[in-house]
Amino acid sequence: MDGSTRDGTRISRLGISRRSALALAAAAPLILSSRTAFAADKLRIGKSVGTSFPFTGADLGLAKGIFASEGIDAEVSVFRGDGQMQQAMAAGAIDIGLGSGPGMGYAVKGVPGIAVAALAGEPRNMSLVVMKDGPIKSVDDLKGKRIGVTTAGSLTDWLTRKLSDGKGWGPHGIEIIPMGEMRTRLAAMKSGELVGSVNSIQETWNLVEQGQGRLLATFAEAVPDFHTHVIFAHRNLIEKNPELVRRFLRGWFKTAHYMRDNRADTVKFIASTMKISEKVIDESYDYELKMLSMDGAFNPKAIETIRYSLKDLGVLDRIPEAKELFMPGFAPVKL
């Protein structure tokens, strides 16, 4: 039964005064607000390169509050290629990585980052550029000609060999010349040392805009079943907090849908982030969006292509089993 203290304050059966109950009721919204404020989980995201249209989705999702809507406090870092990003993963410096399909081979080598979702399919964003007024008019004209790539054993090298093989010329039907940076390859094209170069679609459209180059083809037809980009997660994160991985993936694919449904805003944001003209990004947009995954599902045929590419590229000395390359159970992602 309720009773009274000497000063007349009523006491409940639980021994809590009316004054205390009112104070707790008044403080409840503040307590809930405080909990909400501290609910976001820190997640460190690494981009293997900064000059990638699809990877800029990480910056867009952060800026638009999409990751925040999934309770994620995202931090984005940029690296100089897959190797450096995977080193950061091994050092525990990042939790999530955005990298290339062939980067899946690092998991076989023991690096703790493993693919959990496909980010992009066939390589529509990799292209062949030739001089605007040069002698090459079609892909059929490339037999026996010299094409510039970044480095020997790189993705640009491998794609060119696949193109040559697909034309029935064998993997060496096109003479491949490793030349590093695009400006070096462009100089060689101008001098006639090269007839063309393998570039990102943005680099190619930039040359087109400058009146120097012409888009000959992308590699979508040469390698139709491929995962050009994938999403990696650290095995420790997968083991300790798989739900956080799933929340990140929901945020990522919400961002992918935003990119698809909001062309003008996406073009403006990515142009600003990549420091490239909006015209070049707009020209690239359709190529990029056609290959961008909306749910992260792995294509079994693409996984087979990547298995064999890992030995061809020298990433591994053997052809790995498919189960070594990715972690099932996270994709496809349902929004």
Score class of each variant (00 low, 15 high):
241 N>F: 10
304 E>T: 14
257 H>D: 13
147 I>L: 07
159 L>N: 06
190 K>F: 01
112 P>Y: 03
110 G>A: 10
89 M>I: 02
228 T>M: 11
276 I>H: 10
104 M>G: 02
253 F>L: 05
117 A>T: 06
270 I>S: 12
42 K>T: 15
102 P>V: 09
41 D>P: 04
324 E>D: 11
109 K>F: 00
163 L>D: 06
148 G>E: 00
198 V>N: 10
41 D>Y: 04
250 R>Y: 13
142 L>H: 06
37 A>T: 11
4 S>L: 15
174 I>V: 10
274 M>E: 10
92 G>I: 01
216 L>A: 06
22 L>F: 14
44 R>P: 00
327 M>P: 04
279 K>W: 02
36 T>R: 12
36 T>W: 12
134 G>E: 01
171 P>M: 05
190 K>S: 15
288 E>M: 12
54 P>G: 08
72 I>C: 04
104 M>Y: 00
67 F>I: 00
144 G>V: 06
289 L>W: 04
301 K>L: 15
244 L>T: 14
55 F>P: 00
16 I>H: 12
320 P>E: 11
176 I>W: 03
27 A>F: 14
181 E>D: 13
130 V>W: 03
298 F>W: 02
217 A>R: 09
45 I>V: 04
91 A>D: 14
34 S>I: 11
257 H>Q: 13
38 F>Q: 15
290 K>A: 14
202 Q>I: 15
170 G>S: 08
69 S>E: 13
333 V>L: 06
315 V>S: 12
30 L>A: 15
311 K>P: 07
83 G>Y: 00
163 L>C: 08
269 F>V: 02
17 S>F: 07
170 G>H: 07
246 R>N: 10
170 G>N: 06
189 M>E: 00
216 L>Y: 04
273 T>L: 08
205 W>Y: 15
36 T>S: 14
215 L>Q: 04
295 D>Y: 05
101 G>A: 09
41 D>V: 09
70 E>W: 05
75 E>I: 01
305 T>S: 15
265 D>I: 07
324 E>Q: 13
298 F>E: 06
242 P>Y: 09
329 G>P: 02
296 G>R: 02
25 A>I: 14
62 L>E: 08
39 A>H: 09
236 N>Q: 15
216 L>K: 03
232 F>Q: 04
74 A>C: 06
104 M>T: 07
206 N>Q: 15
27 A>V: 10
234 H>S: 14
173 G>E: 06
193 E>D: 14
118 A>Q: 11
113 G>Q: 05
201 I>R: 05
97 G>T: 02
252 W>K: 03
90 A>Y: 08
206 N>F: 10
217 A>D: 13
211 G>C: 01
64 K>I: 02
203 E>T: 05
313 L>C: 13
335 L>G: 08
65 G>S: 05
14 L>R: 11
30 L>F: 15
201 I>S: 07
294 M>P: 07
219 F>N: 10
71 G>V: 05
250 R>P: 12
64 K>H: 09
263 R>C: 06
184 T>P: 03
274 M>N: 07
207 L>S: 11
59 D>A: 00
68 A>L: 09
7 D>T: 14
286 D>R: 09
271 A>V: 02
207 L>Y: 09
160 T>I: 03
